[in-house]
Simulated scan of single mutants.
Amino acid sequence: MKLATRCVRAFAEDDPYGAVAPPIYQTATFRQPSAVTFGEYDYSRTANPTRTLVEQHIAGLEHARFACAFASGMAAITAVTRLVQAGEEILAGDDLYGGTTRLLAKIAPRQGIRVRWVDATDPEAVEQEIGPDTRLLLVESPTNPLLRVADLERLAALARRRGVLLAVDNSLLSPVLQRPIALGAHLVIHSATKVLCGHGDVMAGVVVTDDEDLHRQIAFHLNAEGAGLAPFDSWLLLRGVKTLALRVERQSASARKVARFLAEQPGVRQVFDPGVGPVVSFTTGDPELSRRFVEAARWFTIAVSFGSVTSSISLPCFMSHAGVPAELRGRLAPPADLVRLSVGIEDPDDLLDDLRQAFTVAEAGSRSSPGHPAGTRSEVCAEPVFCSPD
């Protein structure tokens, strides 16, 4: 069965009433067969039929057998870090979502876990950094927001040879464009809030694996810590996935048009484009020019996150990556002039017209502010003054 068909055919058509859409089991608890035996479901924190359905569906799309759905992407990542014991180490990519960096830098050490950072796009550097205590290699590919691409197959072979778990955050591409399990990864993580759901109306996370023992451990933490996805959110995610293949195809094609347009603009210093997916980033050399550009956009909504059907724009340094701890900003924070675009499903010509007028407005502001000439600086992201890192 082709992937686009799998996205739509989300559940077994065995509903006793012939429902063509899966029902929502909006219940906290379930009647049990007796006072001393459990049925298949007992309490929705542990499991719920609607959540089970979306877990099975996403696992299948990733060509794996198991998945756990969480209340957010960060809850999913937190569950993966629970696989690491006190005294062990996480080796993390050095271009990760700001919330992930905050979790690893501020929370993991409190559990006795050491965290070190490495350029995950350099397999030789990764191999050199893996030590006797390294338990988990955590990477994004493409990374967020610089969109750097790692050789996942090579990293997987390296991790397996060294006895290290490889977890890949696949939020940006989704299983439509990349399936890390098939490349050898042990675990796949999704912020399902983003591309998987695709409508900006669900907070969700998913951890996928083909390893039954790893799945049991992740499921145990989901239940023990109460981080499971609620029934209604599970249903919304299931509905969103039905259009996943269509959305990704349209967004990816439009994003490439946007990338080509940006590459031709004199006010753009560098374009970051992985060649697939809905996200494109660029620098201008001037944080103030970038700010004016973002605020001049009309069809690109100023908002964090990415992957929705509606286009959005942000300054990651001050928004999605504001949580990078101050002591790590010099190495791990994006530059202050970096603009990230998440391209939606609007007509690409309308989006290009919007970007064109935003450049006009931003550059007009540059001419009226001679103290900050465009294209002269690309500063390291400093501590944000209008967005708390906490």
Results as ranks from 00 to 15, higher is better:
4 A>R: 12
6 R>V: 02
11 F>C: 11
11 F>P: 03
22 P>T: 03
24 I>Q: 13
28 A>K: 15
33 P>N: 10
37 T>F: 13
38 F>W: 15
38 F>M: 12
43 Y>N: 10
45 R>E: 13
47 A>W: 12
47 A>T: 13
49 P>A: 11
62 E>R: 05
62 E>K: 06
70 F>Q: 02
75 A>R: 03
75 A>Q: 05
81 T>Y: 06
81 T>D: 08
86 A>L: 00
89 E>M: 01
92 A>V: 07
98 G>A: 09
100 T>V: 00
100 T>W: 05
103 L>Q: 13
103 L>V: 03
106 K>M: 07
113 I>M: 01
116 R>W: 02
121 T>G: 09
122 D>Q: 14
125 A>I: 01
126 V>P: 15
134 T>W: 14
138 L>I: 05
138 L>Y: 10
141 S>I: 00
145 P>C: 06
150 A>Y: 07
155 L>Q: 13
156 A>V: 02
156 A>T: 03
162 R>W: 09
168 V>W: 04
180 P>E: 07
180 P>V: 00
182 A>Y: 03
186 H>I: 01
190 H>N: 06
197 C>R: 09
201 D>Y: 00
208 V>N: 08
214 L>T: 07
218 I>D: 06
218 I>V: 07
220 F>Q: 03
227 A>W: 09
229 L>S: 12
231 P>T: 00
238 L>C: 04
241 V>M: 11
241 V>F: 15
244 L>W: 11
251 Q>Y: 01
251 Q>D: 10
251 Q>I: 07
252 S>N: 15
253 A>F: 13
254 S>I: 04
255 A>Q: 07
261 F>R: 03
263 A>S: 12
264 E>N: 09
265 Q>G: 00
267 G>N: 08
269 R>S: 10
272 F>Y: 08
277 G>V: 04
281 S>A: 13
283 T>C: 06
283 T>Q: 14
286 D>K: 03
286 D>H: 04
287 P>D: 12
291 R>L: 11
291 R>S: 14
292 R>D: 13
306 F>D: 12
307 G>F: 11
310 T>I: 04
311 S>D: 15
312 S>P: 00
313 I>R: 10
315 L>G: 14
315 L>W: 01
325 P>I: 02
326 A>D: 05
326 A>H: 05
327 E>S: 07
329 R>P: 02
333 A>Q: 05
339 V>I: 14
344 G>N: 12
345 I>L: 10
349 D>Q: 15
351 L>E: 12
361 V>Q: 07
365 G>D: 08
367 R>C: 11
368 S>G: 04
369 S>M: 05
375 G>M: 06
390 D>G: 09
390 D>S: 14
